[in-house]
Amino acid sequence: MEIAENAALVVVDVQKGFEEEYWGKRNNPDAERNIAVLIDLWQETGRPVVFVRHDSAEGSRSPLRAGHVGNDFKDFVEERRGKGSGPELLVVKSVNSAFYGEPSLDAWLRGHGVGQIVVVGIQTNMCNETTARMGGNLGYGVVFPLDAMHTFDLEGPYGWTAGADELTRATAVSLHGGGFAEVVGTEDVVRGASAGAAGVR
């Protein structure tokens, strides 16, 4: 796996509100650890990092609503913000895609000559998948480390339900099989990013 020396890590919605019972049962308890590993590596190698925060719409009862403690980044993310030697951006959004936030993620990435993004965070089949799909449509090479994110069980139409692991598999198949993103593991990204960083020293 090749990770460009200026690939951007896009950390989506790693916020305290996702710890509330409101969401139901989650999967992948290792997600936060793997996200932290990738943030640390990106900051150590001077690569660009984008932190994305979801501000739920005014009047929403969502745990991610602005002004609620759940809107804050989880501590392990907040503690890392501003610590890297590379460029960093905060994007605030109120919809699924990080490309529809403020300031413009697309403009910032292009301004830094970025052609590859690595998407991590919460939720796998919601904001992460939407951001990955749009990134692919915009011409970015999208890397999707599936173990550096998590999601929740979900109820849909007709009384249908899907578990978090089932939704994760569906997202992986759709993105990878559909050519929107390369679905990999955190270790794959670490190896690729470390090799790329060593090559530019």
Rank of each mutant, 00 (worst) to 15 (best):
H112E: 02
D40F: 05
N137P: 10
H68L: 10
L41G: 01
L9V: 08
Y140P: 10
L38I: 12
A4W: 13
R65Q: 08
S174R: 04
M134A: 06
Y158S: 10
V200D: 01
T186E: 03
A98C: 10
A98F: 03
T130L: 06
V10S: 00
M1D: 00
G141Q: 11
G115S: 13
I122L: 15
R201W: 15
G59C: 10
W160A: 13
E5L: 01
A170H: 08
A57K: 10
W160T: 14
R26E: 11
W42C: 00
F18S: 00
E129T: 08
W42I: 00
R133S: 04
F144A: 01
G46N: 05
D30F: 15
V10W: 11
G17W: 05
I35M: 09
R65L: 08
A31N: 01
L38Q: 00
D188Q: 12
R169M: 12
V189Y: 04
N128Y: 08
P145G: 04
E102S: 14
V95A: 01
R65P: 05
G67S: 10
L38D: 00
P157W: 14
Q123L: 13
L38T: 01
L89S: 04
G196S: 15
G177S: 07
N96P: 04
F76N: 01
N96C: 06
G24S: 04
I39N: 00
T168E: 13
W108S: 06
P103M: 08
L138E: 04
W23V: 08
G115C: 03
E2H: 13
G199D: 10
A164F: 12
A7H: 03
V92R: 12
F51T: 02
E32A: 11
L167C: 11
E182P: 04
G82H: 01
V92W: 09
R169L: 15
A107Y: 11
Q116M: 09
V49Q: 02
L138Q: 06
I39R: 00
T131S: 13
G46Y: 12
N137L: 13
P63A: 06
D72K: 09
S56N: 04
L105R: 03
P63N: 08
G24K: 06
G46T: 05
F76V: 05
G84F: 03
V37H: 02
Y22M: 07
V119P: 07
A107C: 03
V50M: 14
A4N: 05
A132W: 12
N27H: 12
E58T: 14
P48G: 09
